[in-house]
Design a protein around this nucleic acid. Structure first.
Length: 611
RNA sequence: CAGGGUGUAGCUCAGCUUGGUAGAGCACCUGCUUUGGGAGCAGGAUGUCGCAGGUUCGAAUCCUGUCACCCUGACCA
């Protein structure tokens, strides 16, 4: 067999206009596929276990992985799909540096926004350099110098590149890395609405993302999301359904509404401060009880019987004038900072603990009663906490003490009139749907593989990126940005598609389409047939891996299942005597079937096309 | 960052309590046999016991420090 590892144009010299693609043919013994029988001790997630065991990746440091030949082939296929779909919506590919001056990030304040997540270093002159976590600043910097007129808009640019984020806790193999491959795109517009506007481009990217993840064989949902440190208005996350996913998505089966847990709205809930006090207010000594569950138990109730008061402060231009915002939720609920922000109509952050204590707030033991003693403060109450008929357990506004029998009307008095009631907590399974009366939200776990944002002029304002509009006046450029975690997408494919024997690759992202197993690697006849089959498959565009190792059948079949190539052809005496080869799809269980030589190529191709 | 855990051969791990100078299985190399779902026999090679100090006649083992990695949470395009 003369098959070489480096297969290119089989028909002749490749000229400058010839980039004809035909399939690759690689020999197992001439590439590197270090499969292992046992999983590394520290791998717990399926994609991590199988990508390591199947010889796709190896870990170099926490959240830093080598991509071995198989992984790189899959990644390139994902990248190719990404390129084709970006090409389709008219986005142009380019490449930015991986490093950028920290001073650039200071212009938008994102050096602080990213904080310790930013990898930084100093060059020989002592200049601070960051390894880019994303590229809004460099692209705006470049565009500022490159375009000056509205006539050059709209424009969409993208790149596929390694990104760096010093995650506090990398985990789950490729799902959460400190160095990872990302596709990031940026669009530029004169306006948000109308022809050539951001809204149009956003929809195009939304559609492109839908096609990309569909082509990758993923089951996913596009959910409404918070924009996080990237900023901006509208935002959607593309979430692959997977148990190992870190993100929680709330969905309403009746309306199709789907949103990230940080963003999900909750439907109407009944609330009222009316109702008589049923119990006496009683103080309890509760020292050294970390966790609301412990306190609740001590007080003879549960977390749902308690009120939790979180102290925020408004983000003001004059930081010396602290204005507190008390957010009250039921003890078993979590306050959602974004919803608090929306409810009070200004930016908020958790109050500085030392300052709050100096102002008389017993952090950790605050009750809604504290509101009566504060001047200029705001209080927002979640509907589930705004129940006047309940005798609540809550803090005693005194260190190491709680109270039971607390009552809104009796214990906050006339202040009840000044209470604001709003949805300020994270949604949970079973909450009423915001879009369909009578329906409840359900929780799904997901892996975020894509995220798109309408940035508006956040970055162009900060960096003074303007173009001249038709009215001859300078106008800040409206932007969108669009990211796909390429390496994470590969891992998501494995999370979605595997069985107890290994990976089951969707054909579009499989490192090879067909694996040919030689039962007797030394047998000249088998080698010749394998070579001929591979050649024909390659001419039809299929990538072929030939397992030519001089191994016994057992390990070869086990490895074939492990690395998960969609189509398997086995060349052995059994099938050869019957006048063909054994054909089996990875996703099918049981034995394969013998298919005659003259029809097996068509069979392979059609199986791949319908996969 | 808080809490928990682990570092011994390429991989998975035992040995540590009670100190005496390094082990198993798999993988690897050689030979023979074997060849349709992780073969058998025989022989062989493989270690700075994470690192640095300390105690001791003697440390993988005890003590101190330190580094790395994993898990839960916090955090997070």
């Amino acid at each position: 067999m003369n098959t070489t590892a480096a297969q290119s144009s089989p028909t002749g010299e490749a000229g400058p206009l010839s980039t004809a693609r035909t399939g690759d043919i690689h020999l197992w013994t001439r590439t590197l596929i270090p499969t292992t029988r046992e999983a590394p001790a520290d791998a717990t997630t399926p994609s991590h276990v199988y990508l390591v065991r199947a010889g796709f990746i190896r870990q170099l440091a926490a959240g830093v992985y080598d991509y071995l030949p198989l992984a790189w082939r899959s990644l390139r296929k994902i990248q190719e799909i990404v390129r084709q779909e970006h090409e389709r919506i008219g986005a142009m590919e380019m490449l930015f540096p991986a490093m950028e001056p920290v001073s650039l990030l200071k212009q938008t304040g994102r050096d602080k926004a990213y904080g310790d997540d930013l990898f930084t270093l100093q060059d020989r002159h002592g200049r601070d350099i960051a390894l880019a976590p994303t590229h809004e600043e460099p692209i705006v910097e470049m565009m500022k110098g490159a375009i000056t007129s509205y006539k050059q808009l709209p424009l969409s640019l993208y790149q596929i590149q390694t990104k760096f984020r010093d995650e506090p806790r990398p985990r789950s193999g490729l799902l959460r890395c400190r160095e990872f491959i990302m596709k990031d795109a940026y669009s530029f517009h004169l306006n948000q609405q109308g022809e050539g506007g951001l809204d149009v481009a956003y929809d195009h990217f939304y559609d492109a993302y839908t096609r990309i993840f569909t082509r990758c064989g993923l089951t996913f949902t596009a959910v409404e999301a918070e924009s996080g440190p990237i900023g901006g208005s509208a935002s959607h996350e593309f979430m692959v359904h997977a148990e190992s996913g870190e993100d929680k998505v709330l969905v309403c089966p009746a309306s199709g509404y789907a949103a990230n847990v940080e963003k999900a709205e909750i439907g109407e809930r009944a609330w009222s401060f009316d109702g008589e006090a049923a119990q006496e207010l009683k103080k309890h000594h509760t020292p050294n009880m970390p966790g609301i569950e412990g306190v609740a138990q001590h007080l003879g109730t549960n977390a749902a019987g308690m009120l939790k008061t979180i102290v925020f402060e408004r983000v003001l231009s004059d930081p010396s004038k602290t204005k507190y915002v008390l957010a009250v939720v039921r003890g078993d609920h979590d306050v959602n900072e974004g919803k608090v922000r929306d409810a009070v109509g200004s930016g908020v952050k958790l109050a500085d603990e030392a300052q709050a204590k100096a102002d008389g707030l017993a952090i950790g033991y605050v009750s809604p009663s504290a509101f009566a003693k504060l001047t200029g403060a705001t209080i927002v109450v979640d509907p589930d906490a705004a129940q006047g008929g309940t005798a609540w357990a809550t803090g005693a506004d005194e260190m190491d003490h709680h109270v039971t029998g607390w009552h809104w009307g009796r214990d906050l008095g006339y202040e009840v009139e000044r209470l604001k009631v709003a949805d300020i907590r994270n949604a949970e399974a079973g909450d009423p749907s915001p879009r369909a009366v009578g329906s409840t939200l359900q929780v799904q776990r997901g892996i975020e593989v894509g995220h798109i944002f309408k940035l508006g002029t956040k970055y162009s304002d900060a960096m003074e990126f303007k173009v001249l509009a038709e009215d001859q006046k300078p106008r800040a450029v409206t932007m969108g940005c669009y990211g796909i975690g390429v390496s994470r997408t590969m891992a998501a494919c494995v999370e979605m598609s595997h069985d107890e024997n290994g990976i089951v690759w969707p054909a579009a992202v499989a490192p090879y389409h067909v694996e040919i197993i030689l039962m007797k690697a030394e047998d000249e006849k088998q080698k010749k047939i394998a070579s001929e089959l591979a050649q024909k498959l390659a001419e039809r565009g299929a990538d072929v891996l030939i397992d030519d190792r001089n191994e016994r059948p057992g390990p070869k079949f086990k490895d074939a299942d492990l690395i998960g190539i969609p189509v398997r052809l086995t060349l052995g005496d059994k099938a050869l005597d019957a006048g063909g080869v054994e054909f089996k799809l990875r996703k099918d269980t049981g034995k394969g079937e013998v298919v005659a030589f003259d029809s097996v190529i068509d069979r392979c191709i059609s199986a791949l096309e319908t996969a």
